[in-house]
Simulated scan of single mutants.
Amino acid sequence: MIRANNSLLEEEIQPDLTPLLDIIFIVMVFLLLTASVRLQSLEVDLPQTETKTLQETEADPVTINLASASPYWALQSAPIESWNEFTQALIKEMKKNPQRPVVIGADKAGSVEHMLKLLAFLQQHDIKATQLLMEEEES
C-alpha cells in the first residue's frame, strides 16, 4: 500500500508537457513563415535616356502597344495575333531604320508578364526603348 501511494505521488509530481509542446510548434510555424524566401525575378537592364516628350523626338517613332485582351500585341497600331509574328514584324521594322525611337504603351489592366517578355526581347536584340507611355494621375 505504501508503494501505491508512492506511485500516485510520482504521477502527481511529473509536469504536463502538452502546453510546452504547443508553444514549440507555434514558434516553429512562426519561424517557417518569416524565413526569407528568394523571390524569382527577371533582371532587365533598361537603357538610360534623357526624358523627352513624344513631340520632341526627331523621327517618327515605332509604337508598340500591349493590350489586356487578345490580341495582346500591336505594332504601329496594327494588332498582331501571336508573339512570334509580333517579334518578326518588330525586327523587320527596326531593320528599316535602326535609329527610330521606340515608344511602348501598355494597357493599365494588361499583364506584367507580357511587358517583361517585351522588355527582355528588346534588351536581347539591343533595341533601345526611349519612352514608356504613362498616364499622369490627376490630383
Rank of each mutant, 00 (worst) to 15 (best):
E138V: 07
L122F: 08
D60Q: 11
I26F: 14
G105P: 08
E93F: 01
S70I: 15
W83R: 02
Q40K: 11
M28A: 13
W73I: 04
I26G: 06
A74Y: 14
V37L: 11
E113F: 11
F30T: 05
N5R: 09
L39M: 12
K52Y: 12
S36Q: 12
N65W: 03
F30M: 10
N97F: 08
H114K: 09
A74C: 09
E10Y: 15
K96S: 06
T57V: 08
T34W: 15
A59C: 06
T57W: 15
Y72T: 03
S68F: 12
W73M: 01
K96C: 02
S139L: 06
A4L: 07
K117W: 05
P79C: 04
T18D: 10
L33A: 08
E93G: 03
Q124C: 02
Q40N: 11
K52G: 05
L20W: 08
T51N: 09
Q40V: 14
R3W: 12
M1A: 07
L54I: 09
I91R: 01
M28C: 07
E11W: 15
L8P: 10
T63P: 01
A4Y: 09
T130I: 04
K108P: 11
D16G: 00
K108L: 12
P98A: 11
I104S: 02
L90Q: 00
S68Q: 13
S36F: 15
N6Y: 14
L39Y: 13
Q124T: 02
Q88N: 01
L32D: 04
L118F: 04
E58T: 03
T57K: 04
Q88P: 00
F86E: 01
I23R: 15
P71K: 05
E85H: 01
A59F: 06
L9N: 06
P101Y: 14
E138H: 07
L20Y: 12
K95C: 02
F121K: 01
P15R: 12
D60I: 11
K96A: 10
S139A: 07
V44C: 03
P61Q: 03
P15Q: 12
L90R: 01
R100G: 14
L9S: 08
L39P: 06
E56P: 02
W83P: 00
P15A: 07
M115C: 09
I80V: 05
L8G: 13
M134R: 06
E58M: 04
A74K: 10
G110N: 06
P19A: 10
P15N: 07
I91E: 03
T130C: 04
L118E: 00
L133G: 04
K92I: 06
H125P: 02
A89V: 00
T18P: 02
P19H: 13
E137T: 06
Q99Y: 14
D45T: 03
N65F: 08
Q123R: 00
G105W: 10
E56D: 09
A4I: 11
G110L: 07
